[in-house]
Design a protein around this nucleic acid. Structure first.
Length: 271
DNA sequence: AAAGTAGCCTGGAAGC
DNA sequence: TGCTTCCAGGCTACTT
């Protein structure tokens, strides 16, 4: 379940290993993993050279020469992996890129929630999903964060998960930052003091930065571009720990549903 | 404006 | 053992 830190780690890895390499041929092994037609996709990408790789929200963006972009959403189980020349096709491979130097870049996705989309020139900026993304939590100010939340009547966790409000946060980092800030996930945002919102912003940034430093979190499927697991899952304080004692007060952690997502929290520390 | 739900998917775990 | 059910969860679409 790659969220901001995991996608960031993957982007950095791919930037190092893929920049300067040229895509020779595209194989749409599972065409529905591609947005739009497979022929358009191939026509945009074949012959393109990777000039850089970056992240926006949970999107992986491979920047190509002559203003082309490959956007990848990994969703739950997607991976972008580099393989040696001649490597055999694996069960969940969905799209394969044969590189001019013989290597392979493969999009693998067991559950097929993820997708790839190719864009020409300004089309990326005009894509509704992209256009509507909120600011990056690691690039915005505390004041901006407070402004975007403090008048909203929705539950604080729903807003953290809403990519139009803030980009890149998923269930793990929402729960972990709310716990660290001592805020119950169901709290309406407009009932949280500005001071407490600032605290949440600080904890959110700290958790995200730490997770990037630890190579992300590996629950089930996440692997970085080199196939390595992350380590931040060892630092979880609430995510997946319902029934266990709170690290701060010892009370038993509970779970509840907030906007359809399982949310783990401490009834003692998060009022 | 906010919340609820179904749908998209597979496989591992838990329950019977 | 073998079956069924549940759960994970980002995002869209639709209804209340």
């Amino acid at each position: 379940m790659p969220e901001l830190p995991e996608v960031e780690v993957i982007a950095r890895g791919l930037a190092a290993s893929l920049t300067g390499r040229r895509i020779q041929r595209v194989h749409a092994l599972w065409p529905t993993s591609i947005k739009g037609t497979a022929s358009f996709f191939a026509s945009v990408l074949e012959g393109a050279t990777v000039t850089g790789v970056r992240r926006r929200a949970k999107l992986l963006l491979l920047e190509l020469d002559t203003a082309r972009t490959l956007a990848v959403h990994l969703k739950m189980t997607g991976r972008m992996v580099l393989r040696e020349p001649g490597a055999a096709r694996e069960k969940h491979d969905r799209v394969r890129f044969d590189l001019e130097d013989g290597g392979q870049l493969v999009f693998s996705d067991m559950r097929r929630f993820g997708y790839l989309a190719a864009f020409l020139a300004d089309d990326l900026a005009n894509w509704d999903f992209y256009k509507n993304l909120g600011p990056e939590p690691l690039e915005m100010s505390a004041g901006e964060f407070v402004d975007r939340l403090h008048e909203r009547g929705a539950r604080i966790k729903s807003l953290l998960l809403d990519q139009r409000v803030i980009a890149g946060i998923g269930n793990i980092y929402a729960d972990e930052s709310l716990f660290r800030a001592g805020i119950h996930p169901r709290t309406p945002a407009n009932t949280v003091s500005k001071q407490a919102l600032k605290g949440l912003f600080r904890h959110l940034g700290a958790v995200l930065r730490k997770a990037i430093q630890e190579n992300g979190s590996s629950i089930r499927d996440y692997r970085d571009a080199g196939g390595n697991a992350g380590a931040f899952q060892n630092a979880f304080q609430v995510y997946g720990k319902s029934g266990k004692p709170c690290v701060k007060c010892g009370q038993t952690l509970e779970k509840t549903l907030v906007s359809g997502r399982t949310s783990t929290y401490c009834p003692g520390c998060q009022k």
